[in-house]
Design a protein around this nucleic acid. Structure first.
Lengths: 337, 337
DNA sequence: CTGAAAGCGCTTACAG
DNA sequence: CTGAAAGCGCTTACAG
């Protein structure tokens, strides 16, 4: 396997009869090269099949044109789709997205936010689950963009998310409009101003406004936002004899698990119990019945996260971007107005 | 944002009162350092919070301890799960897995297989979809491990997959055992010895052996292995008035799409039509009815792929590893023997 | 507009 | 066992 040495900038320079610096100027599109020279260099690049080695730049310091996307899991289809589309979108802009699975392990999240990784990145886009909010503020670390979670006291940290409080209110309005009075909320968490707590806050405010019972039994906490936990928690609620006529699940996986439990117990969805989730994962459209879900404008979310990640630190840093959402009505909620 | 400079090997050396080389020796666990010196260096690393910068090594050449995993899409839950678990498994071995989405674009696959990427890797584990088999043989490129696809004439390229022909025969045996005679195959492709063609080959051999019709109408090609294509192709079959009593879909997404089409048309699954897929994605267990599927031993597959990727080129290179599979019987096929 | 030098962090021979 | 030198590919000041 005689590894034919990779073509370097020097080979190109020699082939084109210029210095490396000139090749570097051409590759980086700096407008200081004569047209004729530029063409000669580009032809040499073409002929030799030169691909710039980013490691040289990385070591030199300065921009790596790479962004880490840290997600808790790829097994959640929402994050899988986000990762795929963000990588493709970044590629179109000439950036690389390095997808990192944290499994919700604090130490992994911490290392990325602090920039203590084996290879440098320009910014970290993270959906944190285990990290204490205070730890997200790292002076001297890479630029950080938060997905979902919100940090009150972190002006340097950008934040991109839908309006979770408002979307929960939208969900409650839909259900109350269909006469539902006993709404179960699945998925609350302890942490400060997270996706889960915001959705719960909106749920609480809207149900109170609607004059529904604030029965504490109707708010259920799960460990993981998975189908399994949704299924088991729903079964537990049914077995405890708690009567509900709608389920508001913190994400689609929980909702799908709840749906399965309801079907197994022979409860009619949506006639007896309606179900709603968040994320609009592809599976939502294919479940039976199909699942009503809050869909974020994913293209906007990705664009905003990349913009925030790539913005030079300055006024844009620390921006709060609210992404539009849409409540997609499907078979798991009653049809009609 | 006074970016406090990252701690380098020199800082550690100064702090411990040794030369860098000694720190390098400690970090790389070379057994040439006195115990006492080693302890002092380790303490310095601890105190300064030193994390080795891999970029230095990468530039130097030699092993990067990084493997690229190139998958067509993360939107397919099979690849999302594979990527997550392979990244975690590699991390445990001290390696990094860089997940790259190809979207089935030949140029992207080609760049990875040739090693013409911005940053070097030790090996590429790829599930190719667009690349011509001949192109997978790149002298002087990185080590290549193929998932699924098989290349007859490529002794240097390792291959890890279940026995697709045998698993298709298993599926046919199950269906024929329940008296099914009109088996539809969804998902054949043109390319040479791919996952799809092997499954089709096994299907053809087994149905012939069972003495079923070899009706050409019962083999249907789809463009993408998605729920959408499975759904539309199944509808087309039903609308053409082609009578079938079982569907063998090339993967679970196709099967789930077909399932949805059958439900929509009011056909009873599995009583009238049974459905089987491959991959055993999480969704298979949650569909209604739940989906019978061929499950690869994913841990074994990941371990074999990593072993092949990390093996020094030599006798192990070019190994064919056959991974065990299991036909998981669920609600979409009749129960009983 | 182009050339020669220095240096990013690390490892690999080469001396002691 | 430890130290000083060279170099991986690139970019950033600095001269011409």
């Amino acid at each position: 396997m005689g590894a034919s040495r990779r073509v370097s900038i020097k080979d190109v320079a020699r082939h084109a009869g210029v210095s490396w610096k000139t090749v570097s100027n051409v590759v980086n599109e700096r407008p200081v090269v004569r047209e004729e020279t530029r063409d000669r260099v580009l032809r040499a690049i073409q002929e030799l099949g030169y691909v710039p080695n980013h490691v040289g730049r990385d070591l030199r310091g300065g921009p790596t044109r790479t962004i880490a996307l840290v997600v808790p899991a790829l097994q959640n289809p929402y994050f899988a789709r986000l990762a795929e589309r963000m990588q493709v979108a970044a590629r179109e802009r000439g950036y690389t997205v390095s997808v990192e699975v944290s499994l919700g392990i604090a130490e992994t999240e911490r290392a990325h936010v602090r920039g203590l990784t084996a290879r440098p990145v320009d910014a970290v886009i993270i959906s944190p689950t285990a990290l204490d909010p205070a730890e997200l503020l790292v002076p001297g670390g890479p630029r950080v963009v938060l997905l979902g979670e919100m940090l009150p006291a972190a002006p340097e940290v950008s934040h991109v998310a839908i309006d979770n409080v408002a979307s929960a209110a939208d969900v409650v309005r839909l259900l109350v409009g269909h006469g539902r009075r006993r709404l179960l909320f699945l998925g609350a968490e302890g942490s400060l101003r997270s996706t889960g707590t915001d959705r719960l806050a909106g749920f609480r405010a809207a149900t109170r406004f609607a004059g529904l019972d604030a029965d504490p039994e109707l708010t259920r906490t799960v460990r993981a936002w998975t189908r399994e936990d949704g299924y088991h928690e729903m079964l537990a609620v049914l077995e405890a004899g708690i009567w509900v006529d709608a389920v508001v699940a913190g994400n689609d996986l929980l909702a799908l698990g709840a749906l399965a439990a309801l079907q197994e117990r022979g409860l009619a969805v949506p006639e007896q119990i309606a179900v709603v989730g968040w994320d609009d994962i592809p599976e939502a459209a294919w479940a039976c019945p199909s699942l009503t879900s809050v869909a974020p404008d994913l293209d906007a979310l990705i664009a905003a996260a990349l913009d925030a990640a790539l913005a030079a630190s300055g006024p844009q840093a620390g921006a709060e971007t609210v992404i539009e959402h849409q409540l997609i009505r499907r078979g798991s909620t009653p049809s009609g107005t």
